[in-house]
Write a protein that binds this DNA or RNA. Structure first.
Lengths: 79, 79
DNA sequence: GCATAATATATGCTATTACATATAATTTAC
DNA sequence: GTAAATTATATGTAATAGCATATATTATGC
């Protein structure tokens, strides 16, 4: 689970956004963003979807068997 | 958000699993599975990740720009 | 070093989820 | 049609997320 949260945090940093800015956009207090990013809160699915979208990301459900192919695709995009 | 939940429900049906079976595997009561599947509860991220894994699925965070490519890939897999 | 910026921690309250259990309603199979 | 299977709804409790606000701590920039 905290793989997704770590990725969200990584993306926030890459976009040079502060926790307080993301909090403001999402309606959550900066302190709660901090808790979520540190794995100290288990956020609701809707909260994670909202945060992801604010960072131009989407949560997708995929068959586990396709994970390698999808990861390869994402890795290629990063280059 | 309920796109993911709908997909989970669809996957459960495709695997011919009952709500009570999924509930038992996940430690959640069948009644709560029902609520989640109907969008009447906003489950925690960890709950959704657990349910997904029990159905051989994974939640993945992807750049929105890559959604079409990933969806195309997933569609290909279904054939 | 110091001021400022940013994040982490604390406290408190409300609403909701998670979970238990029971039962009502619907669907399925014969 | 009816019984059995399955899902939906109800009630209750405990734990926690969401949210507000404040402040402590750490990081950054000069």
């Amino acid at each position: 689970m905290h793989g997704i949260i770590d990725q969200l945090r990584h993306t926030r940093l890459a976009k040079k956004l502060k926790q307080s800015e993301l909090g403001h956009k999402s309606g959550l207090p900066q302190s709660h963003i901090s808790k979520i990013e540190q794995g100290k809160a288990d956020p609701r699915l809707s909260t994670v979807v909202d945060l992801a979208r604010l960072l131009d990301q989407e949560l997708v459900l995929v068959p586990r068997s396709m994970l390698p192919a999808i990861r390869a695709m994402l890795a290629g995009e990063e280059l």
